[in-house]
């Protein structure tokens, strides 16, 4: 097994509209936005619903569970990501949205489409955290991969 590299955790740019997402991540919670009018789960988070146009939306805590929709082992990272290969992926959350992220704590060669994953949180050092995903652990502590 290739020892996965420790990825950088650059701080995201915050706006009033999205700050709750990033500060909740620092507390280990994946916050999502839901439309109160049409019940759609919205991604990326914003104040209005891009499906029905309603401005009535609310935050809720997601399960943090999902599956890998697609992934790449990127050998040509740029900036802080320059260096050893890492996994960039879309994860389909059980709530519906497909979110861009990294798959971590696993040999990149072991990642597959459809792999069950769960959210892990990488502190940026600025009161926020990035939401990454690792292979899902069974209740007994064993990974499903």
């Amino acid at each position: 097994m290739v020892e996965p590299r420790t990825l950088p955790a650059p701080a995201p740019t915050l706006t009033p509209e999205t700050e709750p997402f990033w500060t909740a991540a620092a507390e280990g919670r994946l916050l999502l936005k839901r439309c109160l009018a049409c019940a759609a789960v919205i991604w990326y988070p914003r104040s209005h619903c891009p499906l029905c146009g309603s401005r009535e939306t609310e935050w809720f805590t997601g399960s943090g569970h999902g599956t890998v929709y697609s992934f790449t082992v990127n050998h040509k990272g740029e900036g802080a990501y320059r260096g050893a290969p890492y996994v960039l992926a879309y994860v389909e959350l059980v709530e519906g949205p497909r979110v861009l992220t990294n798959i971590v704590d696993v040999d990149p060669a072991a990642v597959t489409v459809g792999m069950a994953v769960q959210a892990v949180f990488a502190p940026t050092g600025e009161g926020t955290a990035l939401v990454r995903f690792a292979p899902r652990r069974e209740p007994g502590g064993h990974r499903t991969d």
Partner: peptide
């Protein structure tokens, strides 16, 4: 913010 932090190229 929801993409660049994860190293997309």
């Amino acid at each position: 913010p929801f993409e660049t932090v994860y190293g997309p190229t």
